[in-house]
């Protein structure tokens, strides 16, 4: 329960949106409407893959007006620890899953006077929800969406249908790239930019924003990290008096959970800070993969974010 209130859902529909992305429609088992959420929010989906528990965050694309379903989009990533492959290959319509309450780490800045939404690939999922919220609020916005080729058009078609000429599409195969230097200079004072997509794209857009003279306060991004695998190591939980092995295909947090300890978490993507844990000792180097701890905190070796970070060494002792 450390991740908060959980909701049981049934997979009501699976749609192959692009060659590599499936959209899942999730309906509540209880029949009670699913909670309203603010755009930019995600849920953590719990999957049980042959006894291996996997929990991944996915941004919410949309909610039915009456709360009868949510939609999430899942990109199949071959080098993942299994979450996306499980959802693509093993989950069928009618299957049951567990999700958390929505959590928003990528909110619209409501004091902004205009909003520029930039998406690349699967990063379109939170942007899709943000555009809809801005449209409903009659707030000024525009959308820039980069995709591989025309076959990736499921989201594009819907965005154009809902937002008309507010949408600009860019196709990699036509050598179309998002020209930050063309988009940003004439935006009115008080505009905010939001970008979600591949790591390299986010970096380029944010750097372009700074080059255009935008203050960092007006530039926002969401980077969800899939926990990276690595060499196995041993973790000792001092308070619980338990020692466990972190396998190469699981995260530190997953190993802790598998050992029966209810450790704190929220985003499972290295962003929110909820799983921050005190390191008692580590015989080896801490591999910090999160976006939460400062460089000084990472260097000090006193804390670790269990959802995405790990040890390159033999044993890690945690204050859990």
């Amino acid at each position: 329960m450390s991740g908060g209130v959980e909701i049981l859902v049934r997979v009501a529909d699976i749609e192959q949106a692009t060659a590599t992305v499936r959209r899942f429609t999730l309906a509540p088992l209880s029949g009670e409407p699913l909670p309203v959420y603010s755009a930019g929010a995600h849920v953590v989906v719990t999957m049980d893959d042959d006894g291996h528990r996997i929990r991944n965050p996915y941004s919410l694309i949309s909610r039915a007006q009456d709360g009868s379903h949510y939609r999430i989009g899942v990109l199949k990533t071959p080098n993942s620890r299994g979450g996306s492959i499980y959802l693509h290959e093993k989950v069928c319509e009618g299957d049951e899953l567990v999700i958390t309450m929505p959590v928003n780490l990528f909110p619209i800045v409501r004091t902004g006077r205009k909003h520029v939404l930039v998406a690349g690939g699967i990063g379109v999922t939170p942007i899709y929800a943000m555009a809809e919220e801005l449209r409903a609020a009659s707030a000024p916005y525009e959308i820039h969406y980069a995709m591989r080729d025309a076959s990736c058009g499921a989201f594009a078609d819907e965005l154009v249908e809902m937002h008309g000429d507010k949408v600009r599409l860019y196709r990699d195969d036509a050598q179309e790239v998002i020209r930050v230097d063309a988009i940003l200079p004439h935006q009115p004072l008080g505009t905010h930019l939001y970008v979600c997509g591949p790591e390299g794209m986010i970096d380029a857009i944010l750097a372009g924003g700074r080059k255009a003279g935008w203050p960092v306060e007006n530039l926002h991004s969401e980077r969800f990290l899939a926990p990276m695998g690595g060499a196995p190591f041993s973790v000792a939980l001092a308070k619980a008096g338990i020692t466990a092995t972190v396998r190469s295909d699981q995260s530190l947090l997953e190993a802790i959970e598998e050992a029966g300890v209810d450790a704190p978490y929220l985003c499972r993507g290295g962003a929110c800070g909820q799983c921050e844990t005190r390191v008692i000792s580590a015989d080896g180097e801490l591999i910090h993969n999160d976006h939460y701890l400062s460089d000084e905190e990472k260097a000090s070796g006193a804390k670790i974010m269990t959802c995405v970070s790990r040890l390159k060494g033999r044993e890690l002792v945690l204050d859990l």
């Binding site: 908060g4 209130v5 909670p35 959420y37 309450m101 929505p102 959590v103 929220l266 929110c272 800070g273 909820q274």
Partner: peptide, 11 residues
């Protein structure tokens, strides 16, 4: 503040 920034719906 850190605690409240992560306050969750329903909790």
């Amino acid at each position: 503040l850190k605690f409240l920034l992560n306050l969750q719906q329903g909790r």
